[in-house]
Amino acid sequence: MRLIKTFFAVCVAAAMVPVALHASSGAPVLPEQSWSHTGIFGSYDKHAAKRGAQVAVEVCMGCHSISLIKFDQLRALGLSEVEVKKLAEVQGRSKNDRMTSAMDETAAKDSFGVIPPDLSLITKARKGYEDYTYALLTGYPSEAEMELVKKVMAKGAISEQDALEVQSALLINAHDKEQMKAKLERLVGGANFNKYFPGNFLAMPAPISAGSVQYADGTDNSLKQLSRDVVTFLAWAAEPTMEERKSLGFWVMGYLFVLTILLYAIKRRIWAKVH
């Protein structure tokens, strides 16, 4: 029986392991970020989301729409009416319009080969959620990394040392040098490479770089800060009712705990006669 129990425990434990096995392409592990809005007590960082709205409108919405949100809703993040109007004008919209990109879909398809996905639900629609979106925005090769790639490719053959260096910089598997070489060739050839995109190559060129957006309040506009802000904004856009949900949740849970304890007390009393 003990053997059975051990077998049972092992099987259940194995089934509970959340990590899926990877078929062939080992997708890189996403660096875990800490967000103010995750966890049961989490709420959106409104300042970051407000800044992120500016990044989204000025940068992302050049191609992407965020059509489930109307410009006017941005006031929930603390933007004034004047600020909302100014942002809407960036895309040639007015404040009661949905946040749709000024670029039309045919034009987008002509330039990128695909219609840029709507970003309204992007943080909920990708495995890894916010962390993935952040990783993608910051996962394009830096100048230093491009230098490294050029240096390695200039040599012709990739040495073991080079392969390991490239692996640690660009997260390409060093075991398969053929594949690495093919990828680096495409990268040097100008294709859009991203460390965290499944398969590495995507239609979108690096959207944000340091200084892409000037914040009115002078907040640091490094790539990391801009990315963090816009991801916070997109997380809000994906679920604006989250805070309402959590705050109602605490009342409901509190009520249920009290009710269940009362029910248990009655159950004990009623059954006391039988036991």
């Binding site: 949900r245 959590k246 849970m253 248990y264 159950k267 059954w271």
Partner: peptide
């Protein structure tokens, strides 16, 4: 009746935890 009601109370605690705090835990991102 009381034993079933008590069971319902315990269930609702777990259920509401997911509904309010981890509603997408069983849903696929795709």
């Amino acid at each position: 009746t009381i034993k079933d009601l008590y069971g319902v109370g315990v269930f609702l605690i777990f259920y509401c935890y997911f509904v309010f705090f981890a509603p997408n835990a069983f849903l696929e991102a795709d």
